[in-house]
Structure formats: C-alpha cells, structure tokens
C-alpha cells in the first residue's frame, strides 16, 4: 500500500533548500514515489550525489545517503555497489555535475553497465553558483557566463549515455511528474546502468534570464515543447527542432558489471584449486 511520501523524508531537516518553484522538489517526489511503488526497504536504499542544487537531495532522504565531491557521485557509487551489490544505489545529480566535470565517470559507468540508477536533474544551468551555463544549456540562451547569448550546443545526454552502453535511458519532465516517476521506477528495476534525464525548471536563474519569470511560465514551456516518443515518431526533424522527446528512449540487455565480476571470483577460485 502506498506510504505517505514524508515516510521517506528526514522531516526534521525540512523545509528543503531549493528556491520557490524550483522543479527539483518535483523530481525528488517522482524518485520517492518510484521507490515507494517498488516497495523498496529503506534500509536497502543508498542515495549518492555530487555537488550542486540537485545534489543537496540526499540530505533530506531517510536512506543511507552520501553527498560527495563535484562530478564524482558515480565513482563513489561504483565503490559502494561493488562491495554491496544487493543495495539499491541511486545517484541524484545535476546536469553540470553529471555532464560537465562528471562526464568521464558518466560514460564509463554506462560502459561498465554497473547496476546504478542515475537521475539527472536537468535545469540546464549551474544553479548553486547562481546562473552559469552548463553542457545542457540550449544555444542562444542567456546565462551569467553567456551575457551575449550562449554559442555552444548542448549534449543530447540520453543519446550520449545510451551510446556509452547503458541498459536503460529515458527522459521525463517535471510537468509530467507521474510518467517521470514511472520512468524512474523502470530505471531502478533495470539490472544494469539506468539513466533518466529529468527536465526541471530553474525559475531563479534560468527562467529570470530567459524571459520565463516564474515556475508556471517554465512549466507551460515544457507543456508546449514536450512530445512523447509515440508522437515524435510521426514528426519531421524540422517539426522536432524546438521540441524535446519524453519517455523510454533506449533499452538493451547487457551483462551487469557486479555479476560479471562473480565470473572472475569463480575463475580465481578455480585457479587456486588447480594449484593446490
């Protein structure tokens, strides 16, 4: 039976740090509802984060929680998962944390296909440091470090992570909080590297600098620009140009890393037997 969402929170630490209307609380709610829908035992969930707005999430969660260094959440999480494969290890971090400084760890964790669920709180900005552009900031947008308009192209993070070898990749958005939660539940259930990009509004820095003065305006933008995978398949590239696709974007079955390591342990044991 579904528990009240506050069952998963360290209530004495609330209210949380995120700004009024910030989407991160909605994404976190989707994460907790996914955990609840899978009826995971709180003693068997470990949440790891890096540095940035999104990475403050674990402090509020009643699990084993670890707030690490900028960009390195996945590397810390890999160590935890290797030594306790039965633990559900979930990484929550922002787009700057995962795709900029943490990019190397992101593609290697996907290549290894270690059973970690990663939710990228993508607000396309560095919020904690108040408004610099990130690898996910769309071209032309304004930021404190793009005062003349951003000239770079953002990653297609889902394509990148899927190409690197992930078993599950999907994108959701705060406007569609319920499907986002189902996507995250599917990611957690995947036995391999699972990645969900969650489009999340940052009214304080991204919105204010880009003519969307509050969360409602930004959520409205999501509503107008999100297309489901089904709908997208019927649209031309031109029609898709300023849209973003939500839903399951990539799945495959590959051996999971901690299980493959069991083969090494078996081989090592056999070698010892042969020598005895």
């Amino acid at each position: 039976m579904a528990k009240p969402i506050t069952y998963y929170l360290r209530k004495d630490k609330m209210p949380h740090i995120w700004c009024e209307g910030c989407g991160h609380g909605i994404v976190l709610g989707a994460v907790l509802r996914a955990i609840d829908s899978l009826e995971l035992d709180k003693n068997n969930v470990c949440v790891v984060s890096g540095i940035g707005c999104a990475s403050r999430a674990p402090g509020y969660l009643d699990f084993d929680t670890l707030h690490t260094t900028h960009g390195r959440a996945l590397a810390f999480a890999t160590g935890i998962k290797m030594m306790k494969p039965k633990l559900n290890v979930i990484v929550l971090a922002g787009d700057g944390d995962l795709a900029a400084i943490g990019g190397n760890h992101l593609i290697h964790a996907a290549r290894r296909n270690i059973n970690l669920t990663t939710v990228c709180f993508n607000n396309s900005i560095y919020g904690m440091t108040s408004g610099q552009y990130s690898p996910m900031t769309p071209t032309g947008k304004m930021a404190t470090t793009a005062p003349y308009g951003h000239i770079e192209e953002p990653f297609d993070l889902c394509d990148l992570v899927f190409a690197a070898g992930a078993s599950f990749v999907g994108r959701g958005a705060t406007y569609h909080a319920r499907p986002l939660s189902r996507l995250i539940a599917k990611a957690i259930s995947t036995d391999g590297f699972a990645f969900v990009e969650a489009i999340s509004q940052c009214p304080t820095y991204f919105g204010r600098r880009n003519k969307m003065r509050n969360a409602l305006a930004m959520l409205d933008w999501q509503k107008e620009h999100a297309v489901t995978t089904k709908a997208a398949s019927k649209l031309s590239p031109e029609e898709l140009a300023d849209k973003f696709v939500i839903g399951e974007l990539g799945t495959r079955t590959r051996p999971e890393y901690t299980k493959r390591y069991e083969d090494i342990i078996a081989a090592a044991a056999k070698e010892t037997d042969d020598n005895v």
Binding site: A75, G79, M83
Partner: peptide, 8 residues
C-alpha cells in the same frame, strides 16, 4: 572516489 564508497 570508489575506494571511499567501498569503505562506507
């Protein structure tokens, strides 16, 4: 970083 995670 993985070493610290494992130690935990």
């Amino acid at each position: 970083s993985a070493v610290i995670g494992a130690s935990l």
